[in-house]
């Protein structure tokens, strides 16, 4: 298909009808809107927050939600609303950077595997091994050996996610290379580089984007899980996982310290997943049918 696309003039730009897009796929629209709200919240956190998220005020500890503290306060008297708003930053940074880094690594390794037999057998063995380790444990092992920080958390989540991307990319490369038109292009002396940029990369893109959306969602969950366990970002950073972890002790008298960031986390992951499902239906109908 890509071979034809090069020669065809682009179709006249269709007027984008927002309403039609929403009506055809309301859940994707919902995901998009939710995600947009969260991004705005993360970017403009200092403007949106009603209080200093780091300010400790023991006098005000464990206050229920009210006009002054919209989502109440935690056991140090910190404003849960402001901390939750800042928490969106951590989740989005982790989600997006893990998705981006593991996509790039996965793409490179997947292409190498699809191209070179010898690389393939070695890399895929390693990937199988990595996939056998539950992702949170793999991340934990890395974190045990490092000083706490956002960077190491991202690295620790990237490693278990890479094999998933490698598998997807490799499968696409192998299937494209077996296509008659690509075989004939190879026989006709098309350069490797041209083959890659013309035929393989464009076809890898759709499944890669879809997969990286799911990686983004899964990374957000893993980060929150790690922070919750005390093995994530340093405890003073207001990430949703940290807020929840710190609320544990007083959960029975101050359930808002857990429920509210928990809801934000669930809604964010939901939004990313909805977007992923929509992209999948749009870009990768074969995968959509299998699910």
């Amino acid at each position: 298909m890509a071979i034809i696309a090069d020669d065809l003039a682009l179709p006249p730009a269709r007027r984008f009808s927002m309403w039609r897009a929403i009506r055809r796929n309301p859940t994707v629209a919902l995901g998009g809107v939710l995600l947009a709200v969260l991004v705005v919240m993360a970017v403009f956190a200092p403007l949106i927050a009603t209080n200093d998220p780091f300010k400790i005020a023991p006098v005000n500890r464990l206050r229920p939600p009210s006009e002054r503290w919209w989502f109440g306060t935690d056991q140090f008297g910190r404003d849960v609303f402001s901390r939750t708003v800042y928490g969106a930053r951590v989740s989005l940074i982790v989600g997006l950077s893990v998705a981006a880094i593991s996509s790039i690594l996965g793409l490179a390794l997947g292409l190498a595997c699809g191209y070179f037999r010898r690389v393939d057998s070695i890399v895929m063995r390693i990937m199988d091994g990595l996939m056998a380790i539950p992702s949170i444990l793999l991340a934990i092992a890395l974190i045990t050996l490092s000083r706490p920080g956002l960077g190491i958390v991202i690295v620790a989540i990237v490693i278990p996610e890479v094999p998933r991307i490698v598998r997807v990319v490799r499968a696409v490369v192998l299937s494209i290379r077996a296509q008659p038109y690509v075989e004939s292009a190879i026989a006709g002396g098309t350069r490797n580089w041209k083959l890659l940029t013309r035929h393989i990369l464009p076809n890898t893109l759709a499944p890669l984007i879809v997969q990286s959306t799911y990686v983004c969602a899964s990374a957000m969950l893993t980060e929150a899980g790690l922070s919750f366990l005390g093995a994530g970002v340093p405890p003073e950073v207001p990430s949703w996982g940290n807020i929840i972890a710190q609320g544990r002790t007083f959960f029975q008298i101050a359930p808002w310290t857990i429920m509210i960031p928990g809801t934000f986390l669930a809604v964010t992951v939901l939004a990313v997943n909805l977007l992923g499902d929509g992209l999948r239906d749009r870009l990768d109908p074969r995968l959509a049918r299998r699910l």
Binding site: A217, A224, G225, N273
Partner: peptide, 10 residues
Amino acid sequence: VLGFAMPVFV
């Protein structure tokens, strides 16, 4: 869809 988004601890 909800089940996929729900963190275990929440």
